[in-house]
Design a binder for these strands. Sequence first.
DNA 1: ATGGTAGACTTTCTA
Length: 276
Amino acid sequence: MKIASFNINGIKARVEALQEWLKEAEPDVAILQEIKSVDDNFPRGLFEDMGYNVETHGQKSFNGVALLSKRPLEDVTRGLPGAEGAGRDGADDIEARYIEATVVGDTQAIRICGLYLPNGNPVELTPEGAPVPGSKYDFKLKWFDRLEARALELMREEQPFLMAGDFNLIPQPEDAKRPEAWKDDALFRLESRAAFRRLMNLGFTDALRVKNNAPNTYTFWDYQGGAFDKNDGIRIDHFLLSPQAADLLRDCQIDAYTRAKAKPSDHVPIWVDLNL
DNA sequence: ATGGTAGACTTTCTA
């Protein structure tokens, strides 16, 4: 089963490019981020006509995630639990950044968690050097903590699951063409990377690290300054597999070619092939 | 020193 993740940077602007890539790549599941659309404006019919079931978790203008799947999407939940003031199902999670569903393969089921982690810039620090409470950076780190809590719950079930999407996080210096340029950025600062490491240490496998650890392999290039032509990129879209999912891993690659096409997203798809 | 790109959507925010 081929499961892909793609930050499309706006469904309205990306309808043609997304359909073209789906025809070429033929993923069984596509996890989308930054649909930048409310649920009612997502052109679900276009993808249903291509054989996909569609589940969205959108909001006006910003963020928004979705799942496309050729097999049924079961037990869909929207929102990341644990938001301040949120209900027990995360219904009050005000930014639409997280969606889960179960897909049943030929041999077993897998829980799929699609996420769009907050960017976190600008970094605001107190004179003591702590993230300013309520700032975007603080929101990012707290979101990481909530994601870790959800991951721990799923780890305890000891079943195949994965967390995939735009983590807005550069794990290591080799994951950026110019790591020094990101030194004080929310995508690379120590607190962010420490939070990602805590998550990883629950037992995840970074699928791309295992299957394609070639140098200068990136998933995002800024629109500005001809970044793609210079391969001035960063690796911030990740597939994290639970131990039971990692046992099924056959391959993981990125479709960097999509970045060179007309009207590209600033991200490119990343996908895994799992034996299920 | 400035502006450099793109998307959503008004006028400015987000990335």
